[in-house]
Write a protein that binds this DNA or RNA. Structure first.
Lengths: 165, 165
DNA sequence: GCATATATTTAAGCACGCTTAAATAAAAAG
DNA sequence: CTTTTTATTTAAGCGTGCTTAAATATATGC
């Protein structure tokens, strides 16, 4: 660990640039679609994990079923998702992206990655290979970290993935 | 540009991991301090750019002076910042972080970087050097990008750095 | 010195996401 | 078949951040 400061400096500089650009990208997307962060997250869940019921949404986002229902309501009203009856349980609903919803999400994902694609264009082949390898190492290391318990932080606070509170 | 797909794949994988961890870190911090995103951003501005008046806040965040005043008010009430009179212009106010505010912001910055510090510990010296170089290349490339006009996106939408709308 | 411009605050009102409590409907249990 | 549990919705209410419009205080221009 002789070069920790160097590494730390590099990654923090990159993080700052990255966060800045990402936030800007998100801002543009949010304005053009009128989607809020929770709304976008909900649609992302449907995109990546497929159709699901209200209760699943409520659990994944750690909000009450009422909150989930209301959030979904706005997305339905704006034509991004549909609320269908679950054939196997008529109490439950099945949430699905509409075509408009799918399109919007794909566009959002594109938006998110666009600037790094542009960044890639400014690099040489060698640089791309070099960076590719470096990122893969970090991704793998981060995934290892994932499985371990958090070692520090705010122990009084319940861990959560949800930001929307 | 023969290896664009490889690069794209690596960076997207890293971005996904990174965003996920960062959001989690922010969530923990937000809960433990009770700070909202706009409140935190405002304090970060004071931390990095130093004391300033209401009008500057209002301009930087692209909100009305009224909104800035109200936002500041909550931070003052919670003891994170102070509103002092500008000696050179008694209409204006000077906003400053309190000790509590400074401490909280430093803690927030730490929180933000903590998991990558942990990640760094799982790497060898060589890997750290390798990654360091790669990240520096990207940071420099990104800064070059910064100065250029955006080439695509949502042209109907006014560009902004603010997310809080 | 008085009119105007500037810096900020206060008040009223809106949209959002959240909560709790109560309502509805259908499945499951007895 | 009635009771209870489960899935979801609706209603009321709260805190946040935002806006516009009006109020206050100070600086500036003529």
């Amino acid at each position: 660990m002789t070069n920790a400061p160097l590494f730390t400096q590099s990654i923090r500089a990159w993080m700052d640039v990255f966060m800045h650009r990402s936030m800007r990208g998100w801002g543009l997307f949010a304005r053009s679609t009128g989607l809020s962060m929770p709304q976008f997250s909900l649609m992302m869940q449907l995109h990546y994990r497929g159709a699901c019921g209200m209760s699943e949404i409520s659990e994944r986002f750690e909000v009450t079923p009422a909150a989930a229902s209301q959030l979904v309501d706005k997305l339905v009203q704006n034509g991004f998702i549909v609320r269908e009856e679950d054939p196997s349980d008529r109490r439950a609903k099945l949430l699905n992206l509409t075509d408009k919803g799918k399109e919007t999400i794909l566009q959002g994902i594109e938006e998110r990655y666009r600037w790094v694609d542009q960044l890639a264009e400014r690099l040489t082949d060698e640089e791309r290979v070099q960076i590719s390898k470096a990122l893969d190492i970090m991704t793998r290391a981060a995934e290892g970290l994932e499985s371990e318990p958090a070692r520090q932080g705010h122990p009084s606070v319940k861990s959560t993935y949800s930001i929307h509170k």
